[in-house]
């Protein structure tokens, strides 16, 4: 049987909806899910899910955060659900999906529309986002100077009186 992994990057409310479409589109697949620790019990409530893997980190999905259980695991399909139409704001999850061995990576948007992502499309998106990141760091560096100088003073001014 083919193996499919869902990276739970959205709320369970949305996944309830996406899962109906995923089950319909991939009927011959055994479906597993990767979720943060607090989501395990909630993910186990799905009838269509074979195995629930734990993402053993507090923070969001990141390329550098390896999941030990996936070291020798190959998936036929990895699905990245996103809370919007285009997947904007989810590049970290898409990048994380590249750290998994998978034949196919598919984005599933809020309307449960599917879009296959090639390695090339992810690479070009990565290059574009790298340029954006450099620009945003430059802008931030300029502002950070003022923040470091003035924010501590401003924070003291809004502190609740009589509290330690």
């Amino acid at each position: 049987m083919k193996e499919l992994l869902i990276i739970r990057s959205v709320s369970f409310q949305q996944l309830d909806r996406n899962l109906v479409a995923i089950l319909e589109r991939y009927p011959e697949h055994r479906i597993s899910i990767l979720t943060h620790e607090h989501g395990v019990l909630l993910a186990q409530k799905y009838k269509g899910i074979g195995h629930v893997y734990v993402y053993p980190y507090k923070e969001g999905f990141k390329f550098k955060n390896k999941v030990p259980a996936f070291q020798d695991k190959n998936f036929d399909v990895v699905i990245v659900p996103v809370t919007n139409i285009t997947g904007a704001g989810f590049f970290n999850v898409l990048l994380f999906s590249l750290s998994l061995k998978a034949a196919q990576r598919v984005l599933c948007n809020v309307r449960s529309e599917f879009k296959e992502l090639s390695g090339f499309s992810l690479l070009s998106l990565g290059l574009k986002n790298l340029g954006i990141a450099v620009l945003s760091y430059l802008c931030t560096a300029f502002l950070a100077l003022f923040v470091i100088l003035f924010l501590p003073f401003k924070l003291r001014k809004i502190e609740k009186k009589g509290e330690s």
Partner: peptide, 23 residues
């Protein structure tokens, strides 16, 4: 606490620029 508020604020400013450009 201040020691966390400063880096988090700077990180959030960076995210605002990043996602404004991305989107």
């Amino acid at each position: 606490p201040l020691g966390m508020a400063l880096p988090l604020t700077i990180r959030l400013i960076s995210d605002c620029f990043y996602f404004a450009l991305e989107q």
